[in-house]
Design a protein around this nucleic acid. Structure first.
Length: 550
DNA sequence: ACTCTAATAT
DNA sequence: AATATTAGAG
C-alpha cells in the first residue's frame, strides 16, 4: 500500500527499489519506458491491459508504491478505470501527446482526485526519476490525516513543491550512494540566468525557522507529539529541490507557511497561510529556480509565529486593499478583511502598514513637490490623462535634472491626519513609477518586478475608481473651500523650499493656495466631473449645483 | 478594543 | 534586512 512516513524513514536507499506499476496503452511504449525506470533502480511492473493492472493492485496492492498510467481520452477506457480504483496509489497520469492540455480534457473528477501529476508523453528522464517524490507526498498525506490538522501545512507544502517538480539534476543518473536525500544541494538548480534573481530570501526565513524549530524541540517542552516528531525527522531528511520549468500548473508557486496567532488569541483556525488564491505565498515571484525545502520548521510553525513573507503578490494585495479602502480608512483590520488572506493576522498587516506608510511618507512628499514641476514629463498615456489632460506642455526630450523621469500623477491628497498615503497608479503595461528614491523593497538589483511592489501600479479598483488628480478643488460654487484648507492639505509644498527647486515649489505653492488664479504652467484645473466624483466618493453629496466647465 | 508610533527583538 | 513584538498613547 502506500508508503508511510516511517517506511520512508527506514527505507535505506530510497527511492531505489521503488515499485512502480506501469500501465501503458501499447506494449511498445511500455517497453520504452520500463527500462528507463529500471535504470533508475525502480522496480517496474508493466501492464498493457487495464484489467490486469487492476487485478494486480487489488491482489497485492501493497506491493506498489506508485503507478504511472497512460490515459487515453479518446478511447473510452483508457486508464480511467484504473485511476478510479487505484486511489490509494499515488498515480501519475500520462498523456499521449504533449500538444494539448490533456489534463483539462479529462473528466472533471479525474482532475486532482486521482492523479498526483500529469505528464505528457515524451517523458524526460528527470520526470521519471522524480516520481519518487509523489510517494513521499502520499506518505505525508497519509500521516497528515492521521495526525493533527496542524500538519496540513506540511502536506501542502509538499504538494506545492511537487507541483514545481521538473527537469533538474540531469547530471547524476541515480541517487545511488545511499544518499537518502535526493534533493540536496548537490543538484544545483539549472535555472535560467535571468530567472535567478527571482530566488529570494525565503531560504533565510526557512533557515531561521529551522533554527527555531530545533531549538524549540530540544527544549522538548512539547506535547508528546510522537508522530509529529517522526515526521519532522523525515522532513529533515528530505530536502527536495525542484525547479519549475514546466507549464506553470496554474498554481502560483507556493511554499506554504503557516502562522498562528499567539496563544492568547486562542485563534486556532489561523494556522495556515494558504488558500488557493489567497495564500501567503512565498516565492520567487513567479519565477523559478525555487529551492523548496520541506523542513521541520514548517511543522513547527504551528507553535511559533511565522514570519510573513511579503512577496510582491502579497504586497500587491495589500496595496490594492489599501487603495480600495481609500487610504484614510486603511486600517489594519479592514485591510486584513479585504485581503482575505487566510492566516494573515492583523498584526502582520499592521506591521506591514507601518512600514508602508513610512515609506510613502518618506518618498512621496518629495515626489509630490516635484510633480508639479514635473508635469511636463507625464505622458499622455496616463490613465488620468485619458480622462483629463493635465498638462499643457508637450513631452520634452528628457529631463536630465533630478526630476523623476517617471510620470507621476497628482493624486488625491487626503487631509485627515498624518498618513496621507496615496495611490499612484498608471495604465497597465506601462512601467511607470520608478520610485526615484525607491525604497528597496526587494533589493535585488535589476529585478524590475519589484518596482511595483510598493509601486502602486495597482489599477484602481473598478468598484471604487479614484479620481487621479489632486489639484485642490476649486469648483464654481465651492468657494467656501478656503486657501487655509489647502495649506493643511498640502503642507509638503514647503518642504523643499530650501532646495534648488524652491522656485518651482513656490509656483506650486501659489497655485495651490490661490486656486482662483489662473493656473501657471499650463495646468488646468480638474474638471467638475472629477471633482464631483471625488466628493461623492467621500460621501459629500450636499453641494451646490455647479455649472459645467470652468 | 483598536489604531498608531516608536523602539526593540528576532 | 525584513518582520515581529512590545509598549505607551490616543
Amino acid at each position: 500500500m502506500v508508503c508511510t512516513v516511517n517506511d520512508l524513514q527506514q527505507w535505506k536507499d530510497f527511492p531505489k527499489g521503488l515499485k512502480v506499476l506501469l500501465l501503458e496503452g501499447d506494449a511498445a511504449s511500455a517497453a520504452e519506458i520500463k527500462p528507463k525506470l529500471e535504470a533508475m533502480d525502480y522496480n517496474v511492473s508493466a501492464f498493457c491491459d487495464e484489467n490486469e493492472a487492476l487485478s494486480a493492485i487489488s491482489s497485492r496492492s501493497e506491493s506498489f508504491h506508485i503507478a504511472i498510467v497512460e490515459v487515453n481520452i479518446n478511447s473510452g477506457q483508457g486508464g480511467f478505470k484504473f485511476l478510479e480504483n487505484a486511489k490509494d496509489l499515488p498515480t501519475i497520469s500520462l498523456g499521449k501527446s504533449g500538444k494539448f492540455d490533456f489534463k483539462r480534457s479529462l473528466p472533471e473528477h479525474h482532475d486532482e482526485m486521482h492523479s498526483v501529476e500529469f505528464l505528457h508523453k515524451p517523458l524526460s528522464e528527470e520526470k521519471l526519476r522524480n516520481i519518487w517524490q509523489h510517494v513521499v507526498h502520499k506518505a505525508f498525506n497519509a500521516s497528515a490525516s492521521v495526525m493533527s490538522e496542524s500538519l496540513k501545512p506540511v502536506k501542502e507544502s509538499v504538494v506545492s513543491m511537487l507541483q514545481l517538480q521538473t527537469d533538474n539534476e540531469q547530471q547524476e543518473s541515480t541517487y545511488t550512494d545511499d544518499d537518502p536525500d535526493p534533493g540536496s544541494d548537490k543538484y544545483p538548480a539549472p535555472s535560467t540566468p535571468q530567472l535567478n534573481q527571482g530566488s529570494r530570501l525565503m531560504d533565510d526565513g526557512d533557515c531561521q525557522e529551522q533554527t527555531n524549530c530545533s531549538t524549540e524541540k530540544e527544549s522538548g517542552e512539547h506535547d508528546g507529539e510522537g508522530e509529529s516528531k517522526s515526521v519532522e525527522t523525515t522532513c529533515g531528511n528530505l530536502n527536495f529541490e525542484s525547479n519549475n520549468t514546466n507549464e506553470p500548473m496554474n498554481t502560483e508557486k507556493t511554499l506554504v507557511k503557516n502562522l498562528r496567532e499567539d496563544s492568547r488569541d486562542g485563534n486556532h483556525d489561523s494556522s495556515v497561510y494558504k488558500h488557493t488564491n489567497d495564500k501567503v505565498l512565498s516565492s520567487d515571484d513567479g519565477n523559478t529556480k525555487s529551492s523548496n525545502k520541506v523542513d521541520s520548521c514548517t511543522l513547527k510553525a504551528h507553535r511559533k509565529k511565522m514570519k510573513v513573507d511579503w512577496t510582491p503578490e502579497l504586497h500587491k494585495k495589500f496595496v490594492k486593499a489599501v487603495e480600495q479602502l481609500g487610504l484614510d480608512q486603511a486600517i489594519p483590520s479592514r485591510i486584513l478583511d479585504l485581503m482575505k488572506v487566510e492566516g494573515l493576522t492583523r498584526h502582520n498587516v499592521a506591521s506591514h502598514l507601518q512600514k508602508y506608510r513610512m515609506h510613502k511618507r518618506q518618498i512621496l512628499p518629495k515626489e509630490e513637490g516635484r510633480k508639479w514641476l514635473n508635469q511636463r514629463d507625464q505622458m499622455q498615456r496616463s490613465y488620468c490623462l485619458q480622462q483629463r489632460p493635465i498638462m499643457a506642455f508637450p513631452p520634452p526630450n528628457h529631463s536630465n535634472h533630478t526630476l523623476s523621469p517617471a510620470p507621476i500623477y497628482p493624486m488625491w491628497r487626503q487631509s485627515g491626519g498624518q498618513a496621507a498615503a496615496m495611490p499612484v497608479w498608471g495604465p497597465p503595461g506601462y512601467p511607470l513609477w520608478h520610485p526615484t528614491e525607491s525604497w528597496h523593497w526587494k533589493p535585488l538589483p535589476g529585478l524590475q518586478m519589484h518596482a511595483d511592489a510598493w509601486g502602486c501600479p495597482v489599477l484602481p479598483p473598478p468598484q471604487a475608481p479614484l479620481p487621479c488628480f489632486s489639484y485642490p478643488l476649486n469648483v464654481p460654487g465651492m468657494h467656501h473651500t478656503s486657501a487655509v484648507d489647502y495649506k493643511s492639505i498640502m503642507p509638503q509644498s514647503s518642504l523643499d523650499l530650501h532646495l534648488a527647486e524652491e522656485v518651482v515649489d513656490k509656483v506650486v505653492k501659489e497655485a495651490i493656495s490661490k486656486p482662483w488664479l489662473p493656473l501657471p504652467l499650463g495646468l488646468k484645473p480638474p474638471s467638475t466631473d472629477s471633482v464631483l466624483a471625488e466628493l461623492s466618493r467621500k460621501g459629500i453629496s450636499t453641494f451646490p449645483p455647479c455649472s459645467k466647465g470652468s
